[in-house]
Design a protein around this nucleic acid. Structure first.
Lengths: 155, 155
DNA sequence: CCTTCGAGGTTCGTCGAACGAACCCAGCCG
DNA sequence: CGGCTGGGTTCGTTCGACGAACCTCGAAGG
């Protein structure tokens, strides 16, 4: 897709993976994006061990992807829940990308287990690669990657 | 984004992560998508330890995301290189999603280190959430997720 | 009061995966 | 022959994931 020699040290793919690339982080975000907010529910739905989950939630909060919000259920003491921030919401396309790939290649002839609809019109939602001229890219092969800025120094 | 109780066991996000969610896999695919094909180059650019890289390449080949292609450089013995298959190319949107998030939130005021251009018109390429009616979604909040098929059984 | 309950953790011992350094192996080159 | 180079494998150590058990706070029940 491009010729190869540039500085990877500040690559955004690597940077993002350093933040959310650990084993359970994206599954936690999947739950958050489905509106699951409570520790025990996240644990139940993801299957992550408690200690790991505590740690992942803490890093996600630290990075401003989730925030801890106190709440009070009636007849309960005050607890807190985890909600997506705007920064966290912007990771949804990543989840959708993973989901679409899985739907295409992992479904054993089954129907995909989850459909995404446009809330206002009900039509199915999907991800598109598109350029500023408005062309939709039929394949990733139409992408040309160009290193910029500080990445230009080789190695 | 939706109410919470359905069967996660065959979620496509989890399934895809089981295939490419390990620490170095997506970085290997980043290199593959940039046209880096040789073991030593992939190792140099990703920084993955050799043993781990051997293992990841093997799993990616096993899953049909990369294929081993024999080649012959002049004055060299026959070796093989790793190339993206169509199935692997379809992971590029995932990489782009990670990259766009990193560009937006991790750039310390720097210019993003890599630009993607439409090969045929040169305009910048980006990912869009769009529905079949043609509406572009301004935010992931406009998505409504609906469990289907075998996922409908709770828990 | 004292006990129980349950959410949201923390601690601990074990065990597997990741790490880096060292080694191996097959050709081609001189 | 001996060395070099790409593509690995082996090995000992370290680090993180795991699951079970324990802790803590506040509300409610007796």
């Amino acid at each position: 897709m491009s010729e190869a020699s540039w500085d990877r040290s500040q690559c955004s793919v690597a940077g993002t993976l350093a933040v959310v690339g650990e084993k359970w982080s994206l599954l936690v975000l999947r739950e958050a994006s489905h509106g699951v907010r409570r520790f025990a529910d996240i644990q139940r739905y993801t299957g992550a061990p408690k200690a790991v989950l505590t740690d992942r939630l803490a890093t996600l909060v630290e990075h401003g992807i989730l925030r801890r919000v106190p709440y009070q259920a009636e007849g309960e003491r005050q607890r807190h829940e985890y909600r997506l921030t705007a920064k966290g919401l912007d990771l949804v396309p990543t989840l959708v990308a993973l989901m679409e790939w899985g739907d295409k290649y992992l479904a054993d002839g089954e129907v995909p287990p989850m459909a995404l609809e446009h809330r206002s019109c009900g039509a199915p939602v999907h991800l598109e690669l598109r350029c500023d001229e408005g062309h939709e890219l039929a394949s990733a092969r139409e992408i040309h990657a160009v290193p910029k800025g500080a990445a230009l120094s080789p190695r």
